[in-house]
Simulated scan of single mutants.
Amino acid sequence: MQQRSPEITIIGGGLVGLSVALGLLLSGRRVRVLDGADSDARASQGNFGLVWGQGKGWDFAPYANWTMDALAVWPEFARQLQELSGIDVALDQSGGYEFFTNPAEMDGFRAELEQQAAHLGHRANYQMLNGDDLRSQLPGIGPEVVGASFSPRDGHVNPLRFLRALRSAVQTAGGRVTMNATVAVVTPQRGGGFALALADGEALYTEQVVLCAGLGAATLARDLGFITQVRPQLGELLITEKLGNRLPFLSSTIRQVDEGGVQIGGTKANAGLDDRETLPIMSKLAHHAVTVFPALADVRVVRAWGALRVMSPDGYPVYAKSSLYPGAFLVTCHSGVTLAPLHASVLADWIMNTSPTPDLEAFDECRFALSHAA
């Protein structure tokens, strides 16, 4: 007779899956996390570590407000993680810049921030700086930089330490994390619940299942009646040697981790499942960094890599409950760092259908069906 497994099984042990698992565990549920193979495309191990709000949801008010909710609770979430895991994720939320060398691009982003502010009302907080004002505040910014936006709410964490902290916190809270456990098939059961067939032949049963496997969830999602089709987006990064001096700024494309190295990134490309870095992009990233902060010209690059982001059709998060098979959920987004505090709290309430249940209707996948019909 098949042994009864934990009440809820999370498929996917990245930032999103572990955050959801932690929220459910802290709410008293029994949770198992099944993480895939090391060879899987893992956005959680190649992200930029930003806790960022500038421009997000400028054309989609629910996402603008959802992001702002997350930024507001990140300090308490970081404290909670350290208490559970003993790991400091190095949260620095002292503000971030978006730099521009093209006046038209800066004007376009200014318009987006104005629209985002219209959604956020009194919670909006940003300023636009011209090049001269920027250089007076941040000596060393290059002469080709025409200006920047700044938001005091933006920040970053150490992304790999954050992943370790989440995994440790889940285990401390009583969750079971199984590595190298690739789910091949999910079969809804006639009397409720789901049978899981793993690639290694193991069979499991769960009462509820939450798909958080990013790019690896496509087939399983279709089998459970979900229509969302995620796609990969390639981002490439440069990593420099560790610097003794601290950079005087954080931006969405240039950040210094707490150990001293500088990450340079911000590219977006549709390259399928190919996550290899490319020389033209590496050169472009280096040129951007030196243009913004010329002192980086003498810094050595020690590593470079590409990583695949998980993108929904419109780029916004998807939180969906299966209409065909009650107890099945789909959770996917490309802002797993920024939104983690809400995935570990509000989203858990939504999955458990507590009262009052959070209204996440704006993030349901039905918007894709309506868009296709239109």
Rank of each mutant, 00 (worst) to 15 (best):
N65T: 15
N65A: 15
W66A: 12
T67G: 02
M68E: 14
M68N: 14
M68V: 07
M68W: 09
D69T: 03
L71Y: 01
L71N: 04
A72N: 04
V73W: 03
V73E: 04
W74K: 07
P75G: 08
E76W: 07
E76H: 10
E76R: 13
F77D: 09
F77V: 08
Q80V: 00
Q80D: 06
Q80H: 05
E83M: 08
E83I: 07
E83Q: 13
G86W: 00
G86R: 07
G86Y: 00
D88A: 08
V89M: 08
V89K: 03
A90G: 03
D92M: 05
D92R: 14
Q93G: 08
S94Q: 12
S94R: 14
G95S: 03
G95V: 02
G96T: 05
Y97N: 04
E98W: 01
E98H: 10
E98F: 05
F99T: 05
T101P: 00
N102Q: 10
N102I: 07
N102Y: 05
P103N: 02
P103L: 09
P103V: 03
E105P: 00
M106Y: 04
D107R: 15
G108T: 14
G108E: 13
F109Q: 04
F109D: 04
R110S: 12
L113P: 09
E114S: 14
E114C: 13
Q116Y: 08
A117S: 15
A117L: 04
A118W: 07
A118D: 11
H119G: 02
H119T: 10
L120M: 08
L120H: 14
L120R: 13
G121P: 04
G121L: 00
G121H: 00
H122I: 14
H122G: 13
R123K: 13
A124R: 11
Q127I: 09
Q127K: 11
Q127G: 08
M128C: 12
M128K: 04
L129C: 02
L129E: 07
L129W: 09
G131C: 09
G131D: 05
G131N: 00
G131Q: 01
D132G: 00
